[in-house]
């Protein structure tokens, strides 16, 4: 079962995104448009996801190990710094421009959508640009195994 865990987690993640409406960029923009005709549906995605994940993380933390006895790779950083805020700002602007965050963008490739594919290529390029910037790379690679997500 463990062998197929990452694939099934990705599949379940994607199914949730499809069912919830997160893969629909127009719906995401409708959620972000508080001043217009506002569709608050997607707030419920966060509620459902956090409620279930909360139980999972509590159980994992209580055990201190995975079900098979392996180590938990939980994020080590608790810093609220310029990188966190600056990066999140940049991400939020890009999200608001297109209506796609990373998970739904990748899943939308499965709809054989060309615009999604172009967005994901640009997103990967942005990540590649980050990984070759020597000024910011050291801390990133040092914490790579313990990233927030």
């Amino acid at each position: 079962m463990r062998r197929v865990t990452p694939f099934l987690a990705g599949l379940l993640f994607g199914l949730g995104l499809c069912l919830s409406g997160m893969t629909n960029a127009a719906k995401v923009l409708g959620f972000l448009d508080v001043a217009g005709l506002w569709d608050p549906s997607l707030a419920f995605v966060m509620v459902g996801a956090i409620a279930v994940a909360f139980v999972g993380f509590r159980a994992a933390r209580a055990r201190g190990r995975t079900l098979a006895g392996g180590p938990l790779e939980l994020p080590a950083s608790s810093a609220i710094d310029v990188r966190l805020i600056g990066g999140s700002l940049l991400f939020g602007v890009g999200w608001g421009l297109v209506g796609l965050c990373p998970g739904p963008a990748i899943a939308d490739i499965g709809f054989l959508d060309r615009r999604a594919a172009l967005f994901v290529v640009a997103m990967a390029a942005g990540m590649a640009f980050f990984s070759v910037l020597p000024a910011i790379r050291p801390t990133a690679s040092a914490t790579a195994a313990l990233e927030d997500g």
Binding site: P75, S77, R83, L84, I85, G86, G87, S88, L89, L90, F91, G92, V93, G94, W95, L97, V98, L100, C101, P102, G103, A105, L118, F119, V120, V121, A122, M123, A124, A125, G126, M127, A128, F129, F130, S131, I136, A140, T143, E147, D148, G149
Partner: peptide, 15 residues
Amino acid sequence: GGLMVGFGTRLANGC
């Protein structure tokens, strides 16, 4: 948008 999302989420270490 893709460049911003890609670079920004790596800088912030998550999305």
